[in-house]
């Protein structure tokens, strides 16, 4: 039987293999090792945390504190330093503990890292990977649960990937670190424990390419991150009524794979996009806009977006569950679109 590892282990393994392959790869972040300059840990070459979720556990003992660098709580400072290190030839992977902290350091991405190459007439390369996590469902409340991959993906010069499976997490992260551009790798914190088959050897998953996870001819559901599982659950339910759903895992939010999505919509004529981000100006609305513009004549109904509501993420468990898009909501949305098929 093939090896099964968690989403978190897949990310850890990608970092490990990238560091093994290329000495220019360094990691920066808050407590990505933990316990810097603590003698009893240093004596045993141990990290204290390995990241707040343990994603980078074991990398400091293997590669040392020169390459796995615990930073002060200074997001602006170390994220900007990662841009500077990338501009001068290293290939840093910096960790923003929660994507909600982007407010502290957005300048480094919005005005610096994403624009240097363009502003400098092509002279700069910014091979920087920013790892961060998003997502509701962990009772982490409004300042630790948002989903901002769409906002970040709307910045020219930034690539954003959102893996949904351990396999794609490993392959996309290795591809991100090899990429000569600023790539934001956004992990759903509620997927860290998810196990699946992942090859041991290093491999890359192409950035900018979506994956068709289930083929169908009646309805297309495009999903981002863990919404893949909502999409697959819905497709399963619809199949019982004889509705064949095509489920596309977008994987890359910026630049998203127009070819795969548009071809699918041409075939099915119906589209639902499930995006956990807040509903306005997110990836779903962008896809809806492009689909309406490019393949309007193929559509048999309106393009539907199933997103989080336009609220911050609530704390109470019942409210948080209401906040998250779920299969019931997608089923209700699908019912409108497929009414003609049932008659």
């Amino acid at each position: 039987m093939a090896r099964r590892i968690t989403f978190m282990k897949a990310i850890n393994e990608a970092l490990d293999q990238a560091m093994e392959q290329d000495e220019r790869v360094i990691l920066l972040g808050e407590d990505i090792a933990g316990g810097a300059d603590v003698k009893h840990l240093a004596d045993k070459n141990e990290d204290a945390w390995g990241g707040v979720f343990g994603v980078t556990k074991g990398l400091m003992p293997k590669y040392g504190r020169e390459r796995v660098i615990d930073t002060p709580i200074s997001e602006m400072g170390y994220m900007g330093a990662a841009v500077g290190a990338a501009a001068t030839g290293l290939r840093p992977v910096s960790e923003l503990m929660f994507n909600d902290f982007i407010g502290f350091c957005l300048d480094t991405i919005l005005a610096q890292g994403s624009k240097m190459r363009y502003m400098f007439g092509g002279k700069a390369k910014i091979p920087l990977t920013v790892r961060t996590c998003h997502g509701a469902g962990a009772s982490a409340a409004a300042q630790h649960s948002g989903s901002y991959y769409g906002i970040l993906g709307s910045i020219p010069g930034v690539k954003v990937v959102v893996p949904a499976t351990p396999y794609d997490a490993k392959g996309l992260l290795l591809a991100a670190i090899k990429d000569d551009n600023l790539v934001i790798f956004s992990e759903d914190k509620t997927l860290y424990g998810l196990k699946d088959e992942v090859p041991q050897a290093a491999y890359e998953v192409e950035i900018g390419k979506a994956k068709i996870k289930r083929s169908g001819t009646d309805l297309t559901i495009v999903t981002i991150g863990k919404m893949l599982y909502v999409g697959l659950e819905t497709a399963e339910k619809l199949a019982k009524d004889g509705i064949e759903t095509e489920v596309i895992d977008l994987l890359t939010v910026a630049p998203w794979d127009q070819e795969t999505v548009l071809n699918s919509v041409k075939k099915t004529g119906r589209l639902i996009i499930i995006d956990e981000a807040n509903p306005h100006n997110n990836t779903a609305t962008d896809i809806a806009s492009v689909v309406s513009d490019q393949v309007f004549d193929y559509l048999d109904g309106p393009v539907k977006c199933v997103c989080a509501p336009n609220t911050p993420v609530p704390f109470a468990t019942n409210l948080e569950q209401l906040y998250l898009p779920n299969s019931q909501r997608v089923m209700e949305t699908a019912a409108e679109l497929i009414a003609d098929l049932k008659n």
Partner: peptide, 12 residues
């Protein structure tokens, strides 16, 4: 804007 970039180059 230059401060952290300089730190990154120094780290390099």
């Amino acid at each position: 804007g230059g401060f952290p970039i300089a730190v990154g180059a120094g780290l390099r």
